[in-house]
C-alpha cells in the first residue's frame, strides 16, 4: 500500500471509531447501574428472585457474547414471522421497526448491556459481600437508615474494592466491541476487514489493532490513576 492509501485507511477507520465508541460508551452507561441492580437482586433474600437472577447471570456468562449479539439482532424478525409466537408478543414486536436506522445499534446494545451487566453484577456482589458485617452494625447503632447505610457507608467502600476487577471488564469491553461486526454493524473491525479485501493487504487490520491498543492503554492508565486516587485509606 502506498502511504497515501494508508493515510486514507487511517482516516476511514478514524471515522468508524465513532460507532465503536458508541457501543463502548452506551454499554458502560447502562450495564454498570444495571449490574448493581442485578447484584442486589441476586442477594435478595426472597429465593425465587435470587434463583432467577442467577440463571440469567449463568446464561450470560456461559454463552458467547457473539452468539448473544446474533440472537438479539435476529430475534425480532424471527419471532415476528415465527409460527408459534403468541399474539401479544407479535403485537409487542410490531412496535419495533427493523428497518429503522437505529435498529442494528439498539440490538447490538441490548446484547452488550445484558452481557456486561451480568459480569459487573458478579464483581459488585463480591464487593458488597466483602464488606464486614460490623460496618452495617456500626451504621445501625448510629441510627442510620438502610438507604443511608448503603449509599454513605457501604457503596463507597465497594467502589474501591471493585475498581481493579471492573477495570479489566472495561478494557475487555473495548476489544469486545469488535464482535458487533458479526451482524454487519459498521465499526472499526468491519471496515478494516473490507479495506483488507480492497487492498489485498494486512495493513488495515494492523491499523485497526493499533486503534484498539491505544484505547486499551489509555484506559489502563486512567484506571491505575483512579486506583491510586482511591488509595487514601486501607
Amino acid at each position: 500500500m502506498t502511504s497515501q492509501e494508508i493515510l486514507n485507511v487511517v482516516k476511514l477507520l478514524l471515522e468508524y471509531l465513532v460507532p465503536t465508541l458508541k457501543v463502548f460508551g452506551f454499554t458502560l452507561l447502562f450495564s454498570v447501574p444495571l449490574g448493581m441492580v442485578v447484584a442486589l437482586l441476586k442477594m435478595c433474600k426472597f429465593k425465587p428472585i435470587s434463583y432467577l437472577t442467577n440463571i440469567y447471570i449463568l446464561i450470560m456468562r456461559g454463552t458467547p457474547l457473539m452468539l448473544q449479539v446474533i440472537v438479539a439482532f435476529y430475534a425480532v424478525p424471527m419471532l415476528k414471522n415465527g409460527e408459534g409466537t403468541p399474539q401479544f408478543i407479535v403485537n409487542l414486536l410490531n412496535n419495533i421497526d427493523i428497518k429503522d436506522e437505529n435498529y442494528m445499534f439498539n440490538a447490538v446494545l441490548v446484547a452488550f448491556v445484558l452481557n456486561y451487566a451480568a459480569y459487573f453484577a458478579e464483581i459488585f456482589r463480591g464487593g458488597i459481600e466483602s464488606i464486614p458485617k460490623g460496618q452495617y452494625e456500626a451504621a445501625a447503632a448510629l441510627s442510620m437508615t438502610r438507604t443511608q447505610t448503603f449509599f454513605k457507608i457501604i457503596l463507597p467502600q465497594v467502589v474501591k474494592r471493585v475498581v481493579p476487577a471492573s477495570a479489566n471488564e472495561v478494557i475487555t469491553l473495548v476489544k469486545d466491541t469488535s464482535l458487533a461486526n458479526v451482524v454487519a454493524y459498521a465499526e472499526i473491525t468491519l471496515k478494516a476487514k473490507q479495506q483488507m479485501q480492497l487492498y489485498s493487504s494486512l495493513v488495515p487490520l494492523f491499523i485497526a489493532g493499533a486503534f484498539y491498543f491505544v484505547l486499551a492503554t489509555v484506559l489502563t492508565i486512567v484506571f491505575s490513576y483512579v486506583e491510586k486516587k482511591l488509595d487514601y485509606y486501607k
Binding site: 460490623g134 452494625e137 486501607k234
Partner: peptide, 15 residues
Amino acid sequence: LKIGLVFQNFNLFPH
C-alpha cells in the same frame, strides 16, 4: 437514638 454502642473491633468507617 437514646443509646450508643461501642464495639470490640471499633468498626470505624475506613473511608
